[in-house]
Amino acid sequence: MNRITLSVAVFAAAAWLTLSVGVALAADAPTVDEIVQKANYVAYYQGADGKADVRMSIMAKGGSKQNRRFSILRRDLADKDTPDPKFTGEQKFYVYFHEPADVNKMAFLVHKHMDKDDDRWLYLPALDLVKRIASSDKRTSFVGSHFYYEDVSGRNVDADTHELAETTKDYYVLKNTPKDAKSVEFAYYKMWIHKTTFLVVQTSYYDAQDKEYRRYKASGVKQIEGFWTVVKSEMHDLRDGGHTVLEYDSVDYNVGLPDDIFTERYLRQAPMQHLK
């Protein structure tokens, strides 16, 4: 009796301990949706708006190198009167190219949507032409680099199912599987999300044979105006060894960019005061 009672008591105590530790862990660990939401927010939505000067180096497989220099302006379409600190909705981007010569003074405007294709315009100054760009293909190279349009402006989080594959010392490792497998070239991708900052430190894309063929890395991070910011990132094509490095300078948040910057007016007449 005594023995049994003791065993039961110990077992009960162990179960209780287990349960309470489990509960405690659950309370501390964010849900998958929270991780996805926070990582998406940190990557694309910090501040009401933002700007950066970007230097892009494209290293092709043969070793040849090309450079691009452009400025990016971004504005979130959150409700201004009741700002939502977790806003991850529609956005507008304005990209102004400085180099190389063949794209100098070109401007690119994107209205990013959640439930339909983005609106994209390209301004060609030599022709004074505002061109509308078809945008159904988001997984195509952005200005010849290893980054896709979707990498630059953000992939819709609802396009994938997310599961927490693993939690390591520093990272939440998410496995993301596309809901529409035919629309993308990957079978799934994994993201290493830094636990304390929710910065995506690495994204690896896998093919159907579970072989990683494409890798994003945040290789430089800085806290700017209180926001953790990737100031250097890389995209590697692991099949041919080519890669692209992005370096962000003059990053600024909450600039107070007016909404009309993201219209045809400023495509034709670049907003130089915001482009340095």
Partner: peptide, 25 residues
Amino acid sequence: PPATPPPASQPATQPSGPALPEGLG
């Protein structure tokens, strides 16, 4: 704080994540 346990308690077989980038905590 709970988010980052110490390296000492990491199992040797723990799959490694990417190295933290410059500037991250």
